[in-house]
Design a protein around this nucleic acid. Structure first.
Lengths: 226, 226, 226, 226
DNA sequence: AATGAATGAGGGTTCATTCAT
DNA sequence: TATGAATGAACCCTCATTCAT
C-alpha cells in the first residue's frame, strides 16, 4: 500500500516534471535525461513507468483532464438553459488552461499538432468536452433558441478556435494576460450571431378602415401572415 | 540571366520539396537529405541556398505569402463597405490555405507553434493580413456598423482562430473537406454578433384616415420617407 | 567497487587508444570513431567519459604527467646541489618522453601548438616542471653557483627548447634515436655557460724582497688575503 | 608581360592572405573560402594557382625564406671568425621571425609539426640555414675555438631549440616581447659552454728570489708545469 | 523496483575540391 | 583566365532506449 503510493507519487513527479519541461522547451527539444533529473529519478526509471517518450507526453493530458472533464460531465446536466450551459462549458474549458499555463502550452503547442495524439485516450477525453459543446449547440437549435440553419460544427469550431487562438497568443506573446475575461464577450458575440430573434422588427400595419377591414402585420422573416 | 533563372529555379525546387516534406513529416522528422533528394540536388547544395534547416523552413512562408499578401493589400482599399472588406480578407486568407494544403499544414502544424517563427520576416508578412483584418474591424466600429463595445482584438481572434481551427481539422481529420464554403457562414455569425442593429425603437405611425389611407412606419436608420 | 574499476579501466582504455591514434594521425585527422573502435567501445561511450574530442585530447597529458610530476616534486627537495637538481629535472623530464614516444609526439606536435591547451589543467601540471627548473636556476644564481647576470628565463628556455627540439626531431626524423644520452652533454654546456668561474682577473703581485720573501696573488672575487 | 605581372601579383596576394589567415586560425581552421575572400578572388582561382590547400601552405615559407636565406648564404662567407658567423646566422634567423610575426606563427605552430612539410622544397631552404649553423659549429671545433668533444648536432639543436621555444612563447604567450635582444645572451652562454679555453687564465707567479729561485706558472686546467 | 552504463542510429553541417562556362 | 555553382565525403555529437545488476 505504502509501496503503491510511493510508486504513484514517483509517477506523478515524473509527469509533473515532464509537463514543465515539455512546456518550456517543446517535446523535441526536451530530453528524457532532463526530465528524469528534474523528477529526481534516473533515465531508466522513467522507462519503468512509460514505454516511450511520446507515451509520457500523452499521459500528461490524460492525468490532467481526468478530473475537470468528469466534473464538467457531472455538472452540465444540472444546468438549465442552453446559453447557460454553453457559458459553463467554455468557462470550464478555459479555466483548465488558465489555471495551468504549462498545460495550456503543452496542449496548444505540442499536442494539437501531433498526429499521433489523435489516436490517444487523452484525446478522447478532451473530445468529450467538444462533444458536450456540440450537444449544447444542437440542443439550442432544436429548441428554437438558435437559428435553424446555424451549422453547429462551425459554431463549435468558432468557439474552440477562438479559445485556442487566445491560448496560443497568451502563451507565445503574453497577450492577452487573462483568458477568463474573454469568455463572456466571446459567448455574447456567438449567441448574438446565432440566436433566433422573434424578429417582428419592421412591423408595417396597414389599416384599412372600411368593409373588409383587415390588419396585416408582416414579419418578413417568417413569411407574411394574412 | 539564364544563370540567374537557373539558380532561382533550383532554389524554388528546394523550397517546393521542403514544403512537401515538412508538411508530410513535420519539421523535426524531415531530413535535409530527404529534401535534397526530392529536389534533385545534394545536401550541400541545400546549404548553398539556406544557412540552416530552420532558415529553409522559414523561407517557405515568405515565398508563398509574398504574392497573395501584396495582392490583398492592393485590392482591399478599393472595396467599399466594411463587411465587404471583411469578407474579402477572410476569403483571400482561406483561399491561400485551401489552394495549398501542404502550406496550410506547414503553417498550422509547424510554424504557428514555433517561437522562433515570431522573429521572422515571413511572420511579419502574415501579420500584415491580421493587421488588415483588425483595421477593418476597427473601421466598422468607428463608422457605426459594429457595436461600439465590441473588442476588435477578440473579434479578430475569433475570425483567425476559427480559420485556424478549421484548417487544422481539415489537415488532421480531413473534415471539413472544403474551407471556402465556411467563409460566409462564419462571417455571417460574426457580423450578426457584432452588428449594430437599426433598432426600430421609435416607431412613428402616420395614420391618414381617408381614401387612400396608408400607415407608414419609418425606421429612422433607413432614412425617413415623406 | 568492481564497477568503479571497470569504469576506470574503460576510461583508461579510451585514453590509451586516443593517445595512440592522436599521436599517429594528429588530432584533426583522428576520428572518434577510430578511437572508440580501438578502445572496443562505441562512439557514444567515448562521449560518456569526455564531453568533446578536445577534452579527450587534453585529458591525456593530465593522466600521463600526474604521476611523474608528483614524483619529481617529492624527490627534488632531497637533492643537494643546484647542478644535481638541474640534472635530475632534465633527466626526469626527458625520461617521460623517451619512455612514451606516443606521448612525446602528442605533446610536441599536437599540444604545444594548441592555444586552448594553455588554459588546461594538464598544462598547469606540465608548467610545474618548468617552474621547478626555473627555481633551480634562480637558486644557482642566488647561491653564487651561476653568473649573477644570467637570465634564468633564457636559461630555462634553452633547456626546454633543446629538449623539445630533440624530441621533435626524434619523432619526425628518427634522429637522435636516444634522448637520455643527451641530458649530460646538454647540461654540461649550459652549466659551463653560466657557471661562475673563480676568475682571478685582476692579479696583484706583491713582491717582498727579503728573507721570507713571498709573492701573494689575490683574486678579488674570493676576498683578498693580506 | 603585364599579364604575367598581374598573375604574379594575384598569386602573391593569395599567399599573403593565406599567411595571415593560417597564422591567425591555424591551418585546419582556416578555410579556402576565407582566404580567397581576403585575397579578393574566388575559391576556384586559388586552385588555379595551388593544387591543394596544403600546397598553398607550403608555398608560403618557400616565398618568404627565399630572399633572406639567399642573402645569408652570400654574406656568411665574408665574415671572419667562427663566433662572429654564429652570431650573424642566429641574428639573421631570428630577424626573419621577428619582422614577420605571422610567418613565425605559421612556421612554429603549423609547419614544424607537419610531417609532410619535411618533404618540401621550402623545408630544404630552411634546412640550409640549419646547415650553415652546423658548418659553423664544426668549423669552430676543427679550428680549436670549440671543445673537441662538443657534439655539433647537440649544439645546433640547442640554438635552434632555444629560438623555436622563444618564438612559440612569443606567439602564444606574448612573452618575451622581443626576440632579437636574446640573441647575444643566448650565444654567449653557448659559446662560454663550448669554447676551448686558452686557459692559462689564472697564472700564479711565485718568485723566490734566492738560491734556487724559480718562477712557477700554474695553469690549473692543463696541469701544472714545473 | 531502480539504475548506471552503454550504444545504435542518425542528422545537420562543413569544406576542399571540381568543372562548365 | 576566372569563377559561380555544385557536391562528395566526412565527422562530431546527441539521445531515446536497453539491460545487467
Amino acid at each position: 500500500m505504502a509501496q503503491k503510493n510511493a510508486k504513484t507519487a514517483r509517477k506523478n513527479k515524473i509527469i509533473e516534471s515532464a509537463l514543465k519541461i515539455f512546456a518550456e522547451k517543446g517535446f523535441q527539444d526536451a530530453t528524457i535525461s532532463e526530465i528524469s533529473k528534474a523528477a529526481g529519478v534516473s533515465d531508466a526509471t522513467v522507462y519503468e513507468y512509460f514505454n516511450t517518450k511520446e507515451e509520457l507526453l500523452f499521459t500528461i493530458p490524460e492525468e490532467i483532464t481526468e478530473e475537470p472533464v468528469r466534473d464538467m460531465e457531472k455538472i452540465i446536466p444540472f444546468l438549465r438553459g442552453t446559453e447557460c450551459k454553453l457559458r459553463a462549458i467554455v468557462q470550464g474549458y478555459m479555466t483548465i488552461y488558465e489555471k495551468n499555463p504549462d498545460y495550456a502550452s503543452l496542449v496548444m503547442l505540442q499536442l494539437k499538432t501531433n498526429r499521433n495524439f489523435l489516436k490517444t485516450k487523452a484525446y478522447e477525453k478532451i473530445r468529450s468536452i467538444a462533444r458536450m459543446l456540440l450537444d449544447c449547440i444542437v440542443e439550442g437549435i432544436e429548441n428554437g433558441s438558435f437559428k435553424k440553419d446555424a451549422d453547429p460544427y462551425l459554431v463549435r469550431s468558432m468557439i474552440l478556435g477562438t479559445i485556442e487562438h487566445l491560448c496560443i497568443r497568451w502563451q507565445l506573446l503574453g497577450t492577452p494576460s487573462n483568458l477568463i475575461e474573454h469568455v463572456d464577450p466571446l459567448i455574447d458575440i456567438i449567441l448574438e450571431g446565432i440566436r433566433l430573434k422573434q424578429q417582428p422588427k419592421n412591423i408595417s400595419i396597414h389599416l384599412q378602415l372600411g368593409d373588409d377591414s383587415t390588419a396585416r402585420i408582416n414579419d418578413p422573416d417568417e413569411g407574411s401572415v394574412s
